[in-house]
């Protein structure tokens, strides 16, 4: 979850790994404050989300290694349309930081808007409307690309 969110969000494996390690180390240092496995999971999720958003804003990160040009792991390479998914990932990567993180939490981590709102410390209504806007924008862009093909 931690590395996966970071690598999908930042699209840079090295930076994602470094940030993920930092988050795990901080978690290790604060373990005495965490009360349960669910608490640890929530803490890790919140920490990596905020670190990723901060990092993207700070460095205005652009991918050094394009994930779409790299082969996926063998166990997960059953997709019929690698190129379609690559296009979708590039479109998601072009979204503003918070919208991008919301989509990742919604479609990668399978969180509902209430859980996303808790992680990002935002009202649920804002999360719902942002998700809706981002999805609509992606659909429109995707449809235009498909028509242009």
């Amino acid at each position: 979850m931690v590395y996966s969110l970071a690598v999908r969000f930042l699209r840079d494996r090295a930076v994602a790994e470094e940030l993920s390690q930092d988050v795990f180390l901080r978690c290790y240092r604060q373990l005495h404050l965490l009360e349960s496995e669910a608490h640890v999971t929530a803490w890790l999720r919140r920490a990596i989300c905020h670190r990723c958003i901060d990092e993207a804003r700070k460095r205005k990160l652009r991918p050094k290694v394009d994930l779409d040009a790299m082969p996926e792991l063998a166990a997960r390479s059953g997709d019929s349309d690698v190129f379609l998914h690559g296009r979708l990932r590039r479109m998601v990567a072009a979204l503003p930081e918070k919208a991008r993180m919301m989509l990742l939490m919604r479609y990668q981590e399978d969180l509902d808007p209430l859980e996303i709102a808790a992680v990002l410390e935002m009202p649920v209504s804002s999360v719902k409307s942002s998700l809706h806007r981002a999805l609509t924008a992606l659909r429109g862009k995707f449809a235009r690309v498909e028509v242009a093909k």
């Binding site: 590395y3 690598v7 790994e17 992606l138």
Partner: peptide
């Protein structure tokens, strides 16, 4: 579209030596 999006954003596994690092 959402199904495809979910597949496109499927989780990525951490490198095998991640925990050791």
């Amino acid at each position: 579209f959402e199904v495809q999006l979910r597949r496109a954003l499927r989780p990525v596994e951490a490198p095998p030596d991640f925990a050791a690092k």
